[in-house]
Structures are given as structure tokens and as C-alpha cells.
Design a binder for these strands. Structure first.
Lengths: 353, 353
DNA sequence: TTATTTTGTGGAACCAGTTCCACGCATTTT
DNA sequence: AAAATGCGTGGAACTGGTTCCACAAAATAA
């Protein structure tokens, strides 16, 4: 570890607007006006000032400006270490960044460190949020406990949550949130399976996650509206989503009646199913059809490529950023919830019966 | 787009140290001393001040402090949009963040937008770097053109580069860099193949990338020291790494003599090879053995799990952050290059002959 | 007892910007 | 010709911290 706080020797006096003012033979106010492209400066003066700025290599100090402006134009993207920068969230971050940079804002990346020892309820807010004036607001992604939202509200920090990952019920509690339509996703994919002639369709997904439960609901809805019996495949204790899929496949193969198609809770589970089925010599989609959820990058690389539900991840990020900016400019505005659509994409893992 | 600059109405006068000073009945200097846990404050006064701070809910303004301290304790993690937050770089970011947060620093995430129209040489520096005082230094990851390094040097911004991705030769040009040992990685994996009895070993990797070339060199070294003939498999024009692997497999199967093992330029190429071989009914590792490079998360999930070269991605991030902090505290220090070791991990894609 | 050092504290000056009021001068209106 | 308006500009006052100097009181040394 380098000694922090050492190296205070060098005090590299920077060029200030006063230097520029002297060099250009004008007042400091004029420099400020030029920098903020305020109208009230004559062309001639403006040119002289810009010339001086260029000559001195002057770059305004962003920090000083921020104090006065009472706005840092920095937002924080907060992710829990649980699901640290999983490609899914990385894509959301991508959306946040692209929208932010388009509006000359910056994105600070922070991690919420849940420790296995501390209960998620009493986790401390990360230092970034504690600091005053560093960030204007927060975008929450990854696993979110409602309690965290309370804490953030308590310090009156504006925030937008990617709500699909909010764990634990929090019914009537209102805040700005962006999510996508889990329910409609599986509704579409299951309907598609039914259209293709499938009747015995199982659902394989870890229902301890609220979003997987919502996907299960979409699946059930599609089944019920076609008078079909929903079946949730219950494997024994699994370690992660892929393994959940593998264990589910074992369960399916051990069972008496074998479904002709399986709706997986997500792409990872679908991959696990595929792996295990293939290993047992069961061909996808010839013997069992398969649909996933999320449309991860890898889905298209599977063999055959996975039919799955596409989620517009960048758009989620963009929408989060957009909503946060709206909130910042209109603090009194009513809270809003935005649910983005999902779309089933046909690839190669479904067979027509 | 929300109108930016609107909503300037609310000027929420914040609590300052002067308020606290008044409330505690002490001078402003004392407040500052308490905040910086400077020794020279009596226990009694300290208690009174802390009480006042608590009562007023005072949080010091970080921006103001930064101006005086001439250090923002924020570093920028810069990634090109080319390889936007690929899991590999995400893991590096993870390392950067963990090291940074441990030392009370923040990480600003920025993207270098290469556009397909603009030549990479004349790309503009991202706004974050232009601003003065916002960040203390930069960590560069993703594709880096040496020219970018020059630009950053020109504005005298301290930086550390993850040098494995530096494109284009830049021999004697010195700067702080962290990398990992491509050469030794393939040297290890190829030697392992030879130990296992393989003699006809091909290399499949897109040599237009400098790091793949270094991996090729490691492979060649291992071959030569065993008096074996290195063979670079040259597929026709491919679209991305996975496709490169697939095309390479086609080439292998079309060839006269079939190697018993293939060293892939990276895991994606290995996956492409595996896909294509499997599709042609060629079993891995029974008929052809395979080794990859990078040890991506997916490697262990392949069937059989991929034997590959592990790269310690978080450690790269941590080392980058560490070096940057050293540089910040000792600006005159000589530049250093750190090459982290790589390690071959045996899994299931190599057969003993 | 007096001289010297130490400890604790107040507050002016400062950092690098922005804001706003006042003022000179030119133009336009009465 | 006098009054009113407008533009361009200078700079004091301010933002919210830190730093440092001065000084009083207490502790120690002579």
C-alpha cells in the first residue's frame, strides 16, 4: 500500500481565470462569461480572451465551478458486489454512460459491498453517497433490498432503481423505477411454444427470485388461457442458475412423462438444461424444445442458437439515466415507473410438432 | 431529452462548517480540525463539535475540500467503445474498484468513443480528461492506440495502461504499464500438450492482434524447443473470434494431415473450434485436444470444461490502481512495467496420447 | 518566581470559480 | 437637448472548505 497523504510537497499552482484576465487585459467576470458562452460579450473581446486561454493552456477547474453550480453533473452507478458487473448489468451501465455522456454528465462507478457476515438490512451506504456534493443522484442496479432504498431516501439523495432486481415485497412504496416486462416475456415465449404444437410444457426456474416468479406467472397465464396444466420442475438443491438447469434436466429425464418443451427461467438455466440433456443423448430441439430469457450474448452462440426473450439492456440504462435527470431538474415531480417491453426471438431451439 | 439547465430555481442552501461552528460555540478552524481528525483538539471540544454535527446533520462538501487539497481522489477507468465492458475488462474494473475503495478513492467510468468514421489516431480525448481537477489520473483498458497515450501525456495527466491491449508498436516509449504474460501462457499450455504425447499441434488465432501474436510466439517457442514444427492455421476471412475458431476448424477438417491438438488464440476461438468440430462429429478431446487462453467464466461451463490459460483479471485491476496511486504520490518516480504471471489450468479438453 | 514551551483555539486569508451590481458609453426615444 | 434604454465590462462579494498565524492559558523548566 502506498502511503496515502504523502507527496504533499508539490503544489503545482494552476492557471486561474485571474491569470487569463490579466493576460487578456480584461476583468475576471468577462472570462467567466466567455467560458459559459454567455451572450453578453463582444466578438472582439471574446476572441482576445480565447486567444489568451489558448496561449496559457488554461483549463477551468471543474471542482470550483461545481461548488457554485450546486450540481456536479456526476451520477453514481451503484451495483452490489453480489452480482458484480455481470454482462447483463454491464450492458445497462453502457446505456447509462452513453446517455450521460451525451448530456455532458459523468458516471461514477461504485460497488455496494454486502458481506456474507452482515445482514443485507444493516449494510452501510457506500462512501460516495455519504459525501455531500460529489454526486447528483444514483442509479441502482443489481440486487437491491428495499431497505437500501429507505436509507438513500433518508439522506435525500435522488435515485432511480432498475426495479427488476428489487428483492422483497415493497408494494405501495413509491420511487422512480425502470424495469422490463418479465411477465409478457414468458407469456410470449410460452404462447409461441403452444402455437408450435406443444402441449406438455414445463417451467424450470429458481422461484426464490422474484423476477423468476414473475416469469413463471407469464408462463402460467399462457398455459391457463390454453387450458393446459402448468408444471414447475423442482430439482434438488442447485448451485447457481446453470446448475439449476442441469439438475432440472435430471429431474425431467427421471420423471414418468417427459414434456416436449421447457421454458427456462433464464438463459443460464436454459444452458444448464441443454448441457445435461445433450450429455444424456437427448437432442434439442428434436426431442425437447427449449426457450430461455434475457438474450445474453452467448445465447446466439449456442448450438443450436437459443430461442429466448430479448431484454433491451442498454435501453434500460438509458431510461434510468433519463429519468434521473428529469428528477434532478424537477425534484417535485411525481414518481414514475417505466416498464420496458420484452420480445421473444425465434432461433433454433424450438421444434414444430 | 430533459431541458438541461432548467430547474435552477431551488438553491438549497446547505449547512456549512460556519453553521456548525456557531452551533457548537467554537471557531471554524476547530470544525475543520475535528473533521480531519487532527490531533490538536481537546476531547471536550471534539465531543461538543461532533454533537453539533450530528444535530445539524452536517456533511462536509467534498468539492470544496478537493479544491484546496488539489486532489480529487477520483480516478478514471477508461475503456474504448470497441470492446465496451467485455467481461474481461469488467473483471479488471472490479479489481480497480476494490483497491480504490479500500483507499477511499472513487472510480469514474468513462468510454472512449471511437467512431467508425474517425481514424483512431485523431480521436478526441474524452471530456473527463479535459476537465481540470476532476480526476487525479487514468487507468486505460481495452484497445489502446499509442497515439492516445501521447495525447494523455500532453495534458500531463498521470496514467497507467493495461498494456496487453496496446495496438501498434511503440518500442522504446516508456510509461507505467501492467500486463500479463501471453508468451508464458501458451508456452505452458503447449508444453503440456507435448508432455501428454501430442506432436502435431496447430495454432489457431487471429494474428492481427498483437497479444495473439505474443501467444503464438510462446507456442512456437515450446514447439521449437521440442524440435516440432509449428503450424499456424489460416482460415478464410472470419467475423470475430468465435467465427475465427469455426473457420479454423473447417480448415483443419479439410486439410490432409489432421493435428492431434490445437492451441487456440483465446477461449472464444477455442469455443468456435469446439462448436464446429462437434457439429462435424469430431469429438473433443477424444479426436482433437484443445486449449484456450483467458479463462473466461464460460470456459468451465463448456462440455467438457476447457483447459485454458488463466489470467488474473482482478489482480490486473488492483495492480493498475496501485501503480497509479504510487505515481500520484511520487510524480518523479521512474516508469515501471509489471507483467503478471499466467497459469495453465488443466480441465477436460486435453487427451493423453 | 519568572521564563519558556506546549496545547488549544479563533479567524483572516485563501482556493478557483460564479454572480450580480454598478458604471461608462453608445444608441434610441421623448 | 434631455432622458431613457441597452450593451459590454470590471470587480467585490460570495461558495464551503483548509491553512496558517496569532494569541491566551496551562504546563513545564530554569
Amino acid at each position: 500500500m502506498p502511503k496515502i497523504g504523502s507527496g504533499m510537497e508539490a503544489v503545482p499552482k494552476q492557471t486561474t481565470i485571474r491569470d487569463v484576465a490579466r493576460a487578456a487585459g480584461v476583468g475576471i467576470g468577462t472570462i467567466s462569461r466567455v467560458l459559459n458562452s454567455s451572450s453578453q460579450v463582444s466578438l472582439e473581446t471574446r476572441a482576445r480572451v480565447n486567444e489568451a486561454i489558448r496561449r496559457l493552456g488554461f483549463r477551468p477547474n471543474a471542482q470550483a465551478r461545481r461548488i457554485l453550480k450546486r450540481r456536479s453533473e456526476i451520477v453514481c452507478f451503484l451495483l452490489s458486489n453480489r452480482d458484480f458487473i455481470h454482462p447483463f448489468h454491464a450492458r445497462i451501465l453502457q446505456g447509462v454512460e452513453s446517455y450521460a455522456s451525451g448530456l455532458r454528465h459523468h458516471v461514477l462507478f461504485a460497488v455496494l459491498h454486502y458481506s456474507p457476515r452482515t445482514a443485507p438490512e444493516k449494510i452501510d451506504l457506500p462512501p460516495v453517497l455519504q459525501e455531500h456534493g460529489l454526486i447528483d443522484g444514483v442509479i441502482l442496479a443489481g440486487t437491491i433490498y428495499p431497505n437500501l432504498l429507505r436509507r438513500i431516501e433518508a439522506i435525500r439523495m435522488p435515485f432511480v432503481a432498475f426495479s427488476n432486481n428489487v428483492v422483497g415485497m415493497d408494494g405501495d412504496h413509491l420511487y422512480d423505477q425502470v424495469g422490463f416486462d418479465d411477465f409478457s416475456g414468458t407469456l410470449q415465449s410460452t404462447r409461441y411454444l403452444i402455437e408450435q404444437g406443444h402441449r406438455e410444457i414445463g417451467f424450470a426456474g429458481d422461484l426464490s427470485y422474484p423476477w423468476i416468479r414473475r416469469r413463471f406467472d407469464g408462463y402460467r397465464q399462457a398455459m391457463r388461457e390454453n387450458k393446459l396444466k402448468p408444471v414447475s420442475i423442482l430439482p434438488r438443491k442447485a448451485d447457481g442458475f446453470v446448475d439449476f438447469g442441469q439438475k432440472s434436466a435430471e429431474r425431467i429425464l427421471a420423471g414418468l412423462s417427459r414434456p416436449s418443451a421447457v421454458v427456462a427461467g433464464n438463459d443460464e438455466t436454459a444452458y444448464g438444461l441443454w448441457l445435461s440433456l445433450r450429455r444424456q443423448g437427448v437432442k434439442v430441439p428434436e426431442e425437447i424444445s427449449l426457450v430461455g430469457f434475457d438474450d445474453r450474448e452467448e445465447a446466439v452462440l449456442m448450438d443450436p442458437p437459443l430461442s429466448t426473450v430479448r431484454v433491451y439492456k442498454e435501453e434500460i440504462g438509458q431510461t434510468c439515466m433519463k429519468m434521473l435527470l428529469e428528477r434532478l431538474h424537477h425534484p417535485q415531480m411525481a414518481y414514475s415507473q417505466r416498464i420496458l417491453p420484452t420480445e421473444f426471438v425465434v432461433r433454433g431451439t424450438v421444434r414444430q410438432l
